[in-house]
């Protein structure tokens, strides 16, 4: 059972090798890459192609490692005890299972996505070492150890906002998603819009790479933004010729809002267009 490009996701050969190696050797796979290159999507597609469940654990700056294991809801228990509710004696009724517990006790092998691990506190990855390594953890309240019945396939994404500790990295396989080249991008577009006009794609790609190559641009547009932009172009029925008309005085592409997310970048483009106009005069 190997992972390859699906009809909705284009995986380069090194990416599928990385995924397959991680599955075979049962290691967590750490994925980095520019925002918008399909890191989170990978886990979804992986679960789909393995026909299994995807459990997603979104990490926020306030997330604690313990929350992925379980939380003890003492407040409910106190209230229940005052009301005399049935079952208050058993602490098990007040343990809220976290995503890891959920993945561990699943009856089949699931895909567990730990999304944007770099958002959490700097100690967060260290707190998960044992759990990821041995796939087990200890529940103090009930004095029992939870073990994974089937080792889940773990995909971890990071946007590089924080350095991850070495001990954690040692336990992972690491893959960096390179920004796709024009040929791969064309494949990706074909997957999303099978019957798009070839001329439009060519023009759009040329413009897109031109934008990415601009010096000083704050946020380079990425794959997902390209896809959104094409969607808009299609919806507005903008013909390829409108893009082809490379009048330097109109350096701003139509519907640029989908591509450029920063007003300073828009200003940069306007300034460039202005300079072109002045030169050509």
């Amino acid at each position: 059972m190997t992972f390859q490009s699906t009809d909705t996701y284009v995986a380069t050969s090194d990416l599928s090798l990385a995924v397959n190696a991680a599955i075979t050797l049962q290691r967590p796979l750490l994925i980095k890459g520019e925002p918008g290159t399909g890191k989170t999507l990978l886990a979804e597609e992986l679960a789909r192609s393995l026909q299994t469940r995807l459990i997603t654990w979104h990490i926020k700056s306030t997330t604690k490692a313990q929350q992925g294991l379980y939380e003890y809801d003492a407040v409910s228990r106190l209230r229940d005890s005052q009301l005399g509710v049935e079952g208050v004696n058993d602490v098990r009724n007040y343990l809220r299972k976290g995503k890891l517990w959920e993945a561990f006790e699943s009856g089949e092998r699931v895909v567990l996505l730990i999304d944007e691990i770099d958002k959490a506190d700097i100690e967060f990855p260290n707190d998960l070492l044992q759990e990821l390594d041995r796939m087990e953890f200890y529940v103090y309240e009930t004095d029992e150890t939870i073990r994974a019945r089937h080792r889940p396939i773990i995909v971890i994404t990071s946007n590089n906002e924080k350095e991850l500790p070495d001990a954690f990295l040692r336990r992972c396989f690491f893959h960096y998603i390179v920004f796709p080249d024009a040929a791969t991008l064309e494949k990706i577009i074909a997957v999303h819009y099978p019957d798009i006009d070839k001329a439009l794609v060519d023009e759009a790609l040329a413009m897109f790479f031109q934008l990415r190559d601009l010096p000083n641009i704050k946020k380079k547009p990425s794959t997902s933004e390209l896809i959104d932009w094409l969607k808009l172009l299609l919806a507005d029925r903008i013909p390829a010729s409108a893009l082809r008309e490379r009048d330097p005085g109109k350096a701003i592409p139509p519907l640029y809002g989908a591509l450029i997310k920063n007003e300073q970048d828009v200003q940069l483009l306007e300034r460039l267009a202005f300079m072109h106009r002045r030169q050509s005069r």
């Binding site: 090798l17 990385a18 050797l25 980095k32 990295l169 040692r170 396989f173």
Partner: peptide, 30 residues
């Protein structure tokens, strides 16, 4: 780990796969 992966035939007799596999397992930072 790399030996384990080679033994499991994740990459076999293909230098490009071998390169990618080695990089995947050994390098933890782009």
């Amino acid at each position: 780990d790399l030996h384990g992966a080679l033994k499991a035939h994740v990459a076999f007799a293909d230098q490009e796969d071998f390169y990618e596999l080695t990089r995947l397992i050994w390098v933890k930072d782009e």
